[in-house]
Design a protein around this nucleic acid. Sequence first.
DNA 1: TACTTTAGTTCGTGCCACGTACCAACCTTG
DNA 2: CAAGGTTGGTACGTGGCACGAACTAAAGTA
Lengths: 167, 167
Amino acid sequence: MTSPNDTPPSAAPSRTGGEPGLVDVDALAQLSFLVHNVLDEIAGQQDLSIIQARLLGVLRDREPTMNQLGRLLGLDKSSISGLVDRAQRRGLVTRTVSANDRRAFQVSITDAGRQLIEQLAAQFAEQIELSVAPLPDADRLRLSQLAAQVVASDAHRRGIDLRTTPR
Amino acid sequence: MTSPNDTPPSAAPSRTGGEPGLVDVDALAQLSFLVHNVLDEIAGQQDLSIIQARLLGVLRDREPTMNQLGRLLGLDKSSISGLVDRAQRRGLVTRTVSANDRRAFQVSITDAGRQLIEQLAAQFAEQIELSVAPLPDADRLRLSQLAAQVVASDAHRRGIDLRTTPR
DNA sequence: TACTTTAGTTCGTGCCACGTACCAACCTTG
DNA sequence: CAAGGTTGGTACGTGGCACGAACTAAAGTA
């Protein structure tokens, strides 16, 4: 992991006093850093980087090829090689030659990997819920609902804006 | 920058269906990645990494020493050296020997650096507002308000939990 | 069969983090 | 004031993570 630091004063480069009726962009940025830091810290406790955690997270219900992994994680294939290498070296994932294409591998999570990511996910949820606990029940719900909406509409927007991951 | 990718399917290692009345932690994680990616992308357009952007952001209204910078950014002092080195090499910040302590430097942002970070902040705000635009006005406001509350209470919690950055 | 595309790896580069080791300038305290 | 410890920063080595370019092998296609 990198830095289990607390949320720094002005984590993001945005200024808080935007236009009149507009959103407090800075708050969103800071929240983003908060969540990111929690994840980083939790992952770090298992000696995982965020990207490794994401890798395992993605592999929980998928067995993609290296190429597909690259698309899923938004990384170049050359980056995927090393990423999977390191995870494999730690016994967290496996490469299996694809049945129909002898060039391709299917990357799968191992039992050890699954156990690790599951534990990590639990701790992460626990921590986030702790951070959010001070809010009244209704507000916590609302927050995550709104977050989900933004994420969904953003995905939609990107999915339409360009190629929907051709194929 | 690293990867101007869109928000991947299951960015975070959390599972969506938590306990009954509990928060959708996954949505918060995904929102965090969304914001993070936007920042990364925007910064990347100016050939800045997120951490470099944060550095400049912090320096907009401060002239800390290397040591204080380390605390602000949650990094080791040895990390700060290189960070400031690279920024200085690009003419974005300056080191000036401290008045009262000849060992220490004061790190300040240059005009070029300020201009860069200001532009970046504007673009960032623009993008985030775009992502949030599909929500009705009231919801956008509510989202950032709730975010601000979480961030504030978290800061408070951490500030009390341990040393308030002793001096 | 030859030509092109696709899947992955390898290599070189650069940033970012860390820990260790190391000065130089404080600050004690005797 | 001099010895001993503390503090501010740098230098160096290591490792993860990202990229692009060059390359091999297997597929697909003409």
